[in-house]
Design a protein around this nucleic acid. Sequence first.
RNA 1: GGCCCGUUCGUCUAUCGGUUAGGACGUCAGGUUUUCAACCUGAAAAGAGGGGUUCGACUCCCCUACGGGCUGCCA
Length: 465
Amino acid sequence: MSEVVTRFAPSPTGALHIGGARTALFNWLYARGRGGKFLLRIEDTDRARSDPANTQAILDGLTWLGLDWDGPPVSQFARMDRHAEVARAMLAAGAAYKCFATQEEIETFREQARAEKASTLYRSPWRDVPSDQHPDAPFVIRVKAPRDGQTTLHDTVQGDVTLSNDQLDDMVLLRSDGTPVYMLAVVVDDHDMGVTHVIRGDDHLTNAFRQNLIYLAMDWSAPILAHIPLIFGPDGKKLSKRHGATAAADYQAMGYPAAGMRNYLTRLGWSHGDDEFFSDAQARAWFDLDGIGKSPARFDVKKLENLCGQHIAAADNAALLHEIVAFLAATGATALTPEQEAGLLRAMDSLKERSKTIPELLEKAHFVLTSRPIVQDDRAAALLTDDARILLSELTPQLQTVSWDRDTIETTLTTFCNARAIKFGQMAGPLRAALAGRTVCPSVFDMMLVIGQTETIARLTDASA
RNA sequence: GGCCCGUUCGUCUAUCGGUUAGGACGUCAGGUUUUCAACCUGAAAAGAGGGGUUCGACUCCCCUACGGGCUGCCA
């Protein structure tokens, strides 16, 4: 079995869409799980709609998701001459022909066809006109598609798909200005790049029949096809702007960890038994084309969040810190000081168990990112009543002399509460306010251990005043 | 209009002719609890509709409905 080569071929007309990200992920997973190559090609032949800034945004999105590609991204536009060369070869072989029909003529035909509710498939009158009768006028090159019989294509996801050949039109290969059309460019590029598996959105399923004509004409072996269903919004409609966040970058900005995003996107429309939460290594080992479903899946943020929470909890502390730093940089927030990073690392165990996103984790990390004097937010301030301050002032001396380990601290606090016949819950609120200045934070024991005895005493003393 | 593809709990899905149709997210109820989160126990929740084939259909076939795609000198 030869090496697996997959590709992701976005057109730079916008940011990396969540659907595109998943298509890229499937290609990446399939190749990486088999020691193959994952290539990138930018389909920038439509000059008016292509923007290099979008190309960069797509690359950034893939990088964030951890999808690395082999070799430099290929610019489709740059390969224009090669595409034209193939069109001419097809012309020479009689598999294509020059069509001198003007766009106005074709449009007139289509309007009439629509009015009569007839087929809008254009049948060029130039298909069989000998070249000595050609006018000296602009022309396009069209493929000479079969009109009889039928074609069956095998798709790994969709199964055998059969199309009657009379549904095929003589699509344009080369425009009248000599530039290639997408349909030609993909086939030539996929062939030249050695792509063995084309995994793409099922909006291309019928296009596959048109593209197949070129493989046939050039006598190239066609790649294995896998047309995956698109992702829909929560309402079952095609994902669009009105669904809110649709770009991968939007999710990055909201602080979803890349690992959780990968897991969620992989599981969306693909399954491996009952496995829901899995690592990248498992995904690479398990991913296969036959686990892909045939119907479109809806995007569910709740499940995304759940998986993200699990991935944060399972993450390696140093790696998580690294991701947080990258998140801060990507969102333009002020960078952490070395002291803050160190503090975050010490607090990580207590933070990652209770956060679904990076901002959520950061919010809970406030106690270690801030420094004295601790400023209470409104909710925390409300907990620091006069009675609470008195309790804190009574407790503080008792903590001053104990050894600083979890059991001792816990015993000290329990004893203290018992002696005053109050519940620990009544003490926890004021302690959180004093230590973190927030009501949302890790357990008071975790915070005390992380910031240490001296700092704890200092913060409690501040709050007692 | 023509052609192609799809349809299992609210959502993601398992099942590949015989199961009390399983799991996960979410929801609800209860428990635990130190806020948030988590955790424990339990519950409600599905084969689009109609015909076939078969001893037996979620599973195979047909029709309908609904959803999506293609039908460009866009990609």
